[in-house]
């Protein structure tokens, strides 16, 4: 019973859309230029429960501080019904922004909804906040999001704390935008109504160029260290 409950909960976590993130799993308050878009394809595999899913995300810059975030997960395995997850749509408004020569501090507000892709499921209204603190080679991202389920859909919530450090280059070139390698460490929690909160820690690396990001990591379930997931993702500036 405990194993099947765990499987269901893990499935529900994996089907929660992540939307646009510069951390591996966290949201960020960094900009998408007006009229610009960033696409992301992510693969995640839970090695213990043999669950695989892909998620497609899109971030669109409406104006300088206004961004639309979309996410749609799809379960690759196990087979069966309800493989297509629900569409998450969020509007991110940067309410506070302080920029310096080699730093930026930003606070964004998130609001939107979850639209079911199956008639048998209900939607949700979601709201939260995201903050980014960047200085020199370090970046901190924090997010908090609550989804109030409609009708029979249970409420859900998440938090993330992400830390990124630029491994190389130690110093940027005088002119031009080169590639860089970043180290990522994240702590995240996922809660669903009538379930206990799952706390997870993620370690990974990112290769970041002007138009592409390639990244990967390992996710450990702190509630049960035997539960691990592998994550692989790519982003493209469209």
């Amino acid at each position: 019973m405990r194993s099947s409950q765990t499987t269901v909960f893990l499935l529900s976590i994996l089907m929660m859309s992540i939307a646009h993130a510069m951390g591996l799993r966290s949201f960020v308050a960094l900009p998408v230029e007006k009229g610009g878009a960033v696409g992301r394809m992510q693969l995640e595999r839970n090695t213990d429960q043999d669950i695989e899913r892909s998620t497609v995300n899109l971030a669109y810059g409406m104006r300088a501080r206004h961004t639309l975030l979309f996410g749609l997960p799809y379960r690759l395995s196990p087979s069966g019904p309800d493989r297509l997850g629900d569409l998450s749509a969020l509007y991110r408004y940067i309410a506070w922004q302080v920029d310096g020569p080699a730093r930026t501090h930003r606070l964004g507000l998130l609001g939107g909804g979850i639209m079911p892709t199956e008639n048998s499921r209900d939607g949700a209204i979601q709201g939260g906040a995201v903050a980014t603190f960047y200085r020199q080679r370090y970046e901190w991202d924090l997010d908090l999001l609550y989804a109030a389920g409609l009708s029979d859909r249970p409420d859900a919530a998440r938090y993330d704390v992400s830390w990124q450090y630029r491994l190389t280059p130690a110093e940027y070139p005088d002119w031009g935008i080169g590639a860089e390698w970043d180290l990522v460490a994240e702590l995240g929690g996922r809660w669903r109504e009538n379930q206990s909160t799952v706390h997870q820690i993620t370690f990974g690396v990112q290769w970041i160029s002007q138009r592409w990001v390639l990244e990967g990591g390992v996710i450990w379930d702190l509630n049960d260290p035997h539960h691990t997931s592998l994550l692989l993702s790519t982003r493209l500036h469209l």
Binding site: E33, K34, G100, Y134, R211, R235, H237
Partner: peptide, 16 residues
């Protein structure tokens, strides 16, 4: 310009 962070983030600036 202030607020610039990583390579990926400033691509939009160059395009603009």
């Amino acid at each position: 310009i202030h607020g610039m962070t990583c390579a990926f983030c400033v691509d939009g600036l160059q395009r603009n």
